[in-house]
């Protein structure tokens, strides 16, 4: 049961929680679980085709999931997932 740390901008969609105990064996499972458990998060984490939204960055412990196996990255119960907004501009 990996813990997921949510950024402030998404907490209001998850009952105000900053950390959520999620279910799932992969990063993709966890994002899907979050979206189904907290309907307000639907569309905030994944695109309609199930790929990760480009406006969020997902980390497993200290590593950006994109540099692991992406949404297929396997998780253990002690892994901590962090979701942060992608911050960019001009």
């Amino acid at each position: 049961m990996p813990d997921v740390r949510l950024p402030t901008v998404l907490r209001s969609h998850a009952g105000g929680a900053s950390v959520v105990e999620a279910e799932g064996e992969t990063v993709g499972d966890v994002l899907a679980w979050l979206e189904s458990t907290f309907p307000g998060l639907a569309g905030q984490l994944r695109n309609t085709d199930g790929t990760a939204h480009r406006f969020v960055n997902v980390y497993v412990n200290d590593d950006d999931a994109r540099y692991l196996d992406g949404l297929d990255t396997k998780l253990t119960g002690t892994d901590e997932i962090s979701i942060l907004p992608a911050v960019a501009g001009g």
Binding site: D64, S82, G89
Partner: peptide
């Protein structure tokens, strides 16, 4: 002309801020 905050640096900053009792 444009910027993208390094995601790794963002994670590091977020954790350090939390340790200090601060928020980004």
């Amino acid at each position: 002309r444009v910027y993208t905050v390094s995601p790794r640096d963002h994670l590091r900053a977020d954790r350090d801020a939390e340790d200090r009792g601060l928020s980004i």
